[in-house]
């Protein structure tokens, strides 16, 4: 028993170390004030512990220069705000669409239902790079939504849909139908049942899909930079890529930006952690 507990603790410790090691490289690069990815070299004749110290990613000196540069050289705050608005709107639109579609796929029997579910999977199977030009044609030329937040929000919320619908549909499947049937007997409309009964019960799964939609919009780079024609409308991932050019890259700025960009996501994780665990479980029960 105790041996097992020790092993468990050791396993967790080792995994945390493996996860943290590259993350620490990013953090130390961000706070190093320098720009080049650090090198590791153990000095000759070093003792075991000196060698170990050399392998720990700690910067030579701590500096906030990269963060200062990042926030002053470019309108980073503005881009952060754009990203927050787009990601938040994507989350709302995406979750609304996914909830209603998933509810119908779970509760109603209609032609094309099974194949619809399969088509959702199919949509994940084709590489996004080849859909760039047609998407440009649709969003910018046909819908005239180029250079608007709306265009990006539309694309992102739809891109996140397949995963969200699958997750939520599974969750609705696992919820007992008794309450809804009783409500139906008492004359409640399907829409009212969906809003008043099913949605509140599905909160945990909604938290997961919300997080997924948020991340989809939060990290997307290529479409954001192709659709937007004004620097003031760029999102954070676009701003970050400025530090990587054809011949060289300012990895210090990039790392500092990555740390900043990860913070909202980590905070969101912290808030949703409780929901997240039970949400994923129930959502995946039947799939």
């Amino acid at each position: 028993m105790t041996i097992l507990n020790w092993l468990r603790g050791l396993f967790i410790l080792v995994m945390v170390a493996i996860v943290l090691y590259p993350v620490l490289w990013v953090v130390s690069l961000a706070f190093s004030g320098g720009q080049s990815l650090a090198l590791v070299s153990v000095p000759e004749g070093a003792s075991f512990f000196e060698a170990l110290r050399a392998l720990l990613p700690l910067p030579q000196q701590w500096s906030l220069a990269n963060f200062e540069g990042l926030l002053t050289e470019q309108p980073f705050g503005r881009w952060l705000l754009n990203s927050l608005i787009i990601a938040a709107a994507t989350t709302i639109v995406g979750v609304l669409l996914a909830c209603s579609a998933a509810y119908a796929l779970s509760r109603f029997r209609f032609p094309g239902r099974e194949r619809g579910l399969m088509l959702l999977l199919v949509s994940q199977m084709f590489p996004a790079t080849l859909m760039l030009i047609p998407l440009y044609v649709i969003i910018v030329e046909w819908l005239q939504l180029g250079n608007t937040w709306l265009g990006l929000i539309a694309v992102y919320s739809i891109t996140a849909l397949p995963f969200c619908v699958w997750m939520l549909k599974g969750y609705f499947d696992s919820l007992p139908v008794d309450i809804e049937e009783a409500a139906l007997m008492e004359g409640a409309s399907p829409v009212a049942i969906f809003w008043r009964i099913a949605l509140p019960l599905a909160k945990p799964a909604i938290a997961v899909t919300a997080l997924f939609s948020f991340l989809t919009a939060w990290n997307e780079f290529i479409l954001a930079s192709i659709f937007m024609d004004e620097e003031a409308l760029y999102t954070v991932p676009v701003g970050l890529r400025f530090f990587v050019s054809d011949f060289s890259a300012q990895w210090g700025y990039f790392a500092a930006g990555s740390v900043l960009v990860s913070l909202p996501v980590v905070i969101l994780f912290l808030g949703l952690q409780r929901f997240l665990v039970s949400g994923l479980s129930a959502g995946a029960v039947k799939g």
């Binding site: 579609a101 949509s123 030009i133 649709i138 539309a154 694309v155 739809i158 619908v165």
Partner: peptide, 25 residues
Amino acid sequence: RTAASFVGPAAIGMLVLVFFPLAYG
């Protein structure tokens, strides 16, 4: 009709922004 109204918005979105580009590909 109820099912269609629930699935409709997502289906139209998928059709225009996913399956049309996919068909083009």
